[in-house]
Design a protein around this nucleic acid. Sequence first.
DNA 1: CCACAACCCTGAGGGC
DNA 2: TGCCCTCAGGGTTGTG
Length: 272
Amino acid sequence: MPELPEVETVVRGLRQPLIGHTIESMWYDWENSIALPHANEFEGRVVGQTVIGIRRRAKYIVIELDKDLLLVHLRMTGRLYVAEENAVQRVDKWVHVKFGLDGAKELRFSDSRKFGKVYLTDNIDDVTGGIGPEPLEDTFTVAVFKERLTGRRKVIKSLLLDQHFIAGVGNIYADEALHRAAIHPQRSADSLSDEEIVRLYTTVRAVLAAGIQHEGASINWYRKPDGTQGESQKHFYVYGRDGQDCLTCGQARIEKSRIAQRGTHFCPNCQK
DNA sequence: CCACAACCCTGAGGGC
DNA sequence: TGCCCTCAGGGTTGTG
């Protein structure tokens, strides 16, 4: 499930093969993969535009074209990569949107679960407006984090998953950050002490930065644009480790519960 | 403001 | 081998 580190890794991997290329055609076989504008308008507007740059905002891949922004959200099982046009190798039956590029290449959006979406807009706020601060930016200080937490009574794990509260954190890194901060995921946000707020601020940034260093977590579907796997999953303390011994204290087994309709992993001994 | 559930989807994995 | 069932979950929407 691509979160901030996975999306950042995809963005970095796409710069070299994509920047400078021009979109010459568009194909799709699943209209619901196209969020906005309507599929009829999308093709006529995107064709002829050249890729200027690629960046990330929250969990969105932002491809800067000369007139518009092409945004892609991978949701659960989305992949975005450049391949040789009509390549026989790397057969991928889940490609639902393709952008033909100059030089006989194509940008493919593949998504087995069909949750992901592509967007074309000249105003990024149409898509990402209202999303919270980027946790790895310098302007996201512990003071900012604390200020945003004040008055919030939500369960802390739910709040971390809320993109309007903070950008890019998903289920895996929320569990990992809470574990390393020794905070129980069910705690209400306004119950956190100043010390715990500082700890959580630090571990949220640390697990995301480490995730990027390891080029993302290849759980189930995620792959880097070159098709290889990331290594982040090898460094998890709690995610997917329910029933196994806690790597932090060794005194308990990792438990799994459900918070905000998400599988939630934690150590009942370490996290209070 | 908050909790909860349905919804969008289909592959993977377990039980039999 | 294959059928049925459950699970995985990011974000949106609706209800209470």
